[in-house]
Amino acid sequence: MMDLLTTYILHQADNALILGHRNSEWTGHGPILEQDIAISNIALDLIGQARNFYQLAAIRLNETDTGQILTEDDLAYFRDAQEFRNLVLVEQTNGDWAKTILRQFYFSTYQYLIFAALLQSPYTGLSAIAEKSIKETRYHVKWSGEWVIRLGDGTEESRRRIQEALKGLHPCIPEIFQAADFEYEAASLGIGILPEQIKAQWYEQVNEIFITATLPVITPEKESMQVLSGKNGVHSEQLTELLSEMQVLQRTYPGCEW
C-alpha cells in the first residue's frame, strides 16, 4: 500500500514523464528545424525531472521492504493507467502546434509555481529536485508564453487555432486546482502546498500573456467539478493509448534488461 507522500511524488513524476513523452512525439516533425530542437530540449528536461522524482519514489517504496526492489523503470513501465497520477492536461494529444504550445504554457506556469513552493520544503528529497529543475522550468514558461503571443497576435489562422486550443484545453483546467488526497497530506505535513494556494497567481500570469497575445482572458469557473481527474487515476482514453505504446517492450518481455 503506497503512502500518500509517495503518491504526491509520483504525481510530479507522472506529470513530467507524460508531458515529456508527448513533446518527444514532435521530434522530426516540428514546424522548423530550430523548433524541433527546442521542443526536444523541453522533452529532455521533463524526462530528467521525471527520473529524479521516480527515483525518489522508488527509494521510499524500497524502504518499506516489500521484498522486490523497485526502480524508476518499474514505476514508469509497469503501472496501469488508473495508477498514474498526472493531470489530464498533460496526456492530451499534441494536436497542432497551437495546442502543444498552450498545453505547455498552462503546465509550465503551474509547475514553476509548484517548484517555487517546493524550494522551501523541509523534505530535502523534494526541495533538491525543485532546485535542480526550477531554472529550466522558468525557461519553459518563457518559451511557451512567447509562442502564445506569436500565435495569438500573428495571423488570422494562428489566432483561430489557438482559440480552438483554448476551447479544447479549457475543461482540463479545473482539475489542476482541485486538491487530491495526497496533496492534502503533503500540505498538512508542511512538505507541499495545496494547488488552491497558487490558483490566483496562475490565472494572473496566464492572463498577462493572454492580454499581450490579444486573446480573451480566462476566469476560474465557479465550483465546476471536472469529471475526469487524472490525479485520482481517472484518465482519458488518451493515456491508455499512450501507455500501451510507451510500455510495450517492457510488458512484452518482462524481467529483461535494456
Binding site: 513523452h21 518527444s24 522530426g28 526536444s40 529532455l44 523503470d73 514508469a76 517492450l249
Partner: peptide, 17 residues
C-alpha cells in the same frame, strides 16, 4: 515513444536531437 527504459528514452531523444 517505445524506448524500453527512461535512460534509453532520454539518450535516444538526445541523439535524434
Amino acid at each position: 515513444t517505445r524506448a524500453p527504459s527512461l535512460r534509453r528514452k532520454a539518450t535516444l531523444i538526445a541523439k535524434v536531437q
